[in-house]
Amino acid sequence: MKKTVKTEFSEYKNSRMRRAEAKNGILFVLPWIIGFLGFTLYPILSSLYYSFCDYSVIKEPVFTGVKNYVTLFHDQTFIKACKNTAYMMLIGVPVTTFFAVAVSVILNSKKLRHTGWMRVVFFIPTLVPTVVACLLWIWVMQPETGVVNTLLGYIGVKGPGWLASPTWAKPAFIMMMIWTCGNAIIIYLAGLQDISESLYEAAEIDGASFFRETISITLPLLKPTILYNMVTLVIGVFQWFAEPYIMTQGGPNNATMFYSLYLYQNAFTYFKMGYASAQAWIMLVVAFAIILILFKFLKFGESNNS
């Protein structure tokens, strides 16, 4: 890669041409630079400033130091929201990842034919507008007349109250999360395509089982893809908003009060902009830390898939 860049550079010995190219390059990316400054950098920095302020929109922000942060850690609803979000990350994300990887590995199995339509089936839930998915799942999860409990009834299990139950509301959301993991499946399938066929052939000669092949070849080589999808999911869980907002409003008993929902309520229901900004900054720092941990944990770059 570096070598070709060098030889290409030697073609452009003329420094005037190089300067013209640089000028053009910056001109082409100018829209991004303007957008980044106006719609990303400025908001990030003012968000940081507001997080140290008391700001209720009608009055100008008043600097109050770390008060918002201190208050947050004594705010029972905030602590509950953190716990609920952690629950989704520690249980929802691994369960969804396991399901998506398992389905992708089976779909990718060369011996199975006629799986094309199944790929479509697993993908289409991601196309459903979030609001519609919420309306739909309210009904799917109904205690008495819902599809899930009707199906459970067929095998003799009395289903729980799902969204109405403090214990089962979060698992209900995890089910919904799994239902919409189609994007991840598509990315896993693309990652699986990149794994060289010859590795499996060699393993087959050695008499390795499908399970063994998956553990020893597929999963290690799929690590970068798993990492990418897990990062996407973790950010997704932090931003998990429309679903609890529409389906439960955080209830019952704050069992589905998630991080972004509480942030939204503070900002746009109670107009505590400074307080909500402090929440947003904690989110940014924690999300970044989690991503770093995931990178370390999955030892990104060690496998030679890419």
């Binding site: 053009n24 390059g25 908001p43 990030i44 932090f238 931003q239 947003a280 970044f288």
Partner: peptide, 27 residues
């Protein structure tokens, strides 16, 4: 097109991908 600092700036582009919308939403 090649210009000085291009790949470093591109890293910033990639970094904005993990930026939660909630951070910029309020400002």
């Amino acid at each position: 097109l090649r210009w000085p600092g291009r790949d470093k700036v591109f890293m910033i582009v990639l970094a904005t991908m993990i930026l939660p919308y909630q951070v910029t939403m309020i400002p």
